[in-house]
Each structure stands twice: as structure tokens, then as C-alpha cells.
Simulated assay, not measured.
Amino acid sequence: MTPTTVLTIAGSDSGGGAGIQADLKTFAALGAYGTSVITAVTAQNTRGVDGVLPLPPQTVVEQLDSVLADFTVRAVKTGVLGTPAVADAIADAARAGRLPQLVVDPVLVATSGHRLGITAAVERLLPYALVVTPNCAEAAALTGAPVTTVDQMVTAAETLAARGPAHVVVTGGDVDADGESVDVLVDAGGTTLLRGPRVATGNNHGTGCSFSAAIVVRLAAGDPVPTAVATAKEYVARALSGGRDWKLGAGAGPLDHFGWSSAPSSRPY
């Protein structure tokens, strides 16, 4: 069968753990054909971000036009946008209906603390998003209020939902809720708390990118949003568990996107 095509619009990660690289790994692991539009080139590794080069808006638009002219894209996600001008161009495409089932991962600050996104740029996309997936720090930046507890996650999700997106998921990887990892989903159906066991590992680089990418794959396959979100959470938990003891780099390592740790015999080396 011909695989379903999905699209990521994001920055690259030279360390391979996040951004475009994590998105494409997730797409492939879950059986979708991934296309990409690169918004920025970053110099980074597991220890942090050493540099960011935003691409010109024209280059971003040319990539987008090229992909959409040749592929039937079923769902799209955004990550790092780079500049307000790029955000405007992507928002124009969304407004024109060219970005189906848009998932906005509002990447603002890397795990290392390096600022990657511009809050105002992300806000341009909120009215056109089917799903928005901020972590607690990103939700705090977008709402201007602290987000350090599950109750504050709910309030932040409700605040962001009022700005246009149909579904808001505030991910709680930074909040220890009695040993659980709790994500908050707010939409027209109300508030849902998605609970799962917390995976103890320092290898969590690219978690948010992988989560939003997994949602995109499931939306493209026809899942309703709550099902897509729950399935994506399960996928990320498995990927975190699989890579928990990896020793790749000296900092926050990547996830086990392909389940290598659980099926070593499938690896050709």
C-alpha cells in the first residue's frame, strides 16, 4: 500500500534528536511518509544549542510550494518558525486552507535554555490550528502566567483554547504528579487528564517534537483528536523507556524512536 503523506515545518537539529530529524523518525516509525520544510538550521547536540540560522521566508515558501504541488499531504505540524516573517507566511498558507489538520508545536525554548522561537510568531498560527501542544514553559510564555501544577496546566489550556485552536494539549513532562506524567487536553468536549507512568531518564531530547509528530500521523490515518493524542502519548512513553539508558552524547540524549531497545535482533549491526 502507498503510505500516507504528512509534513513537518520546523528547524533542523544537527544532533539528530529533535526538530525535523525527530519528526521524520517518528513519521517513519509509525508508518507515514514524511516530507519537510526547514525554517531554520541549528547547530546543536545533546548539551545544547550553539547557533541558529533562520532561513529567508522566500526559501521557506519555496519548499512549502514544492511539497504541496506534488504530494497529497494529509496532516501538517509546525515546530520552530524562526522569524515573524516566516510565521506570517505559514499563517497565510493555513488561512488559505493549504495546511490540513494543522498541529502547532510552539517551540520557544530548547531544553538547554536557548531561545529558538518568538512568542508573537507562534500566536499568529493559533487561530488556524486543529491542535496546539505546548509544554509547561511554552504555555507559561504564551499565557503570561506560571504553569507548574496540573491545575495551572488546565487554566493555561483553557486560556489558549479561547484564542482559536480546536484542541489544546499542555504536556506535563516537567510536572511530577505523584510519579505520573499528566497531560491536559482541553477542547469542546471539556477537560481530559491523560495519565501515564513517569519514565525516569535524562534522555528526553525531542520529546515534544516526537509527541506532536505522532499526533500528525494518527490524524492522517483518520483518528479523532483525543485518540490521536492518547496514542501519541503512549508512543513517546515507549520511546523514552527504550532509550532511557542510552549513552549518546554528554547531555540530554534522544529517544528510541524505532523501538531498537525492545527488538535488538531486528538491527543489522
Score class of each variant (00 low, 15 high):
Thr111Asn: 06
Pro106Met: 12
Gly202Ser: 08
Thr35Asp: 03
Val236Met: 05
Arg267Trp: 04
Ile38Leu: 07
Asn203Thr: 14
Gly51Asn: 04
Arg267Val: 04
Ala85Gln: 14
Ala141Met: 06
Gly190Lys: 08
Gly11Glu: 03
Asn204Met: 12
Gly206Trp: 07
Ala214Asn: 11
Gly242Val: 02
Pro197Leu: 14
Ala239Asn: 02
Ala110Tyr: 02
Thr46Ile: 04
Thr83Arg: 03
Ala166Leu: 04
Ile20His: 09
Ala252Asn: 13
Gly208Pro: 10
Leu130Ser: 09
Val186Leu: 10
Glu138Trp: 13
Gly11Phe: 12
Val182Thr: 15
Ala91Val: 11
Thr149Cys: 00
Asp23Tyr: 09
Val103Pro: 07
Ser266Ile: 02
Gly259Asp: 02
Val60Leu: 09
Ala200Phe: 01
Phe211Cys: 10
Val170Phe: 02
Gly16Ala: 06
Val76Ala: 02
Ala137Pro: 00
Ala232Tyr: 06
Arg124Cys: 12
Leu185Asn: 11
Ala177Asn: 08
Asp174Val: 13
Glu158Gly: 06
Val41Thr: 06
Arg124Ile: 07
Pro84Thr: 07
Val67Arg: 00
Leu99Asn: 10
Met153Arg: 08
Ala96Asp: 15
Thr111Lys: 13
Val186Ala: 14
Leu99Lys: 10
Phe211Met: 15
Ala18Gly: 10
Gln58Ser: 13
Pro226Trp: 06
Val229Asn: 06
Thr201Ser: 11
Gly15Val: 08
Tyr269Pro: 00
Gln21Asp: 10
Pro56Trp: 07
Val150Gly: 05
Leu30Gln: 05
Tyr235Glu: 01
Gly249Pro: 13
Ala110His: 05
Ala220Lys: 13
Leu125Arg: 05
Gly31Ile: 11
Ala89Cys: 03
Gly97Val: 06
Val103Glu: 04
Val150Lys: 07
Leu185Ala: 12
Val122Pro: 00
Ala94Ile: 12
Thr59Glu: 00
Ala221Glu: 15
Gly17Arg: 13
Val52Ser: 00
Gly242Ile: 02
Arg218Thr: 11
Pro165Glu: 11
Leu255Ser: 10
Arg163Asn: 04
Leu160Thr: 05
Pro56His: 04
Gln44Trp: 09
Val170Ala: 00
Ala263Gln: 06
Ser12Ala: 01
Val86Asp: 03
Glu234Thr: 12
Gly202His: 15
Pro134Arg: 12
Leu255Gly: 09
Lys77Gly: 02
Gly11Ala: 08
Pro254Ser: 12
Gly97Ala: 09
Val229Ile: 15
Ala10Trp: 15
Val107Tyr: 07
Val73Leu: 06
Asp23Arg: 13
Ala188Gln: 13
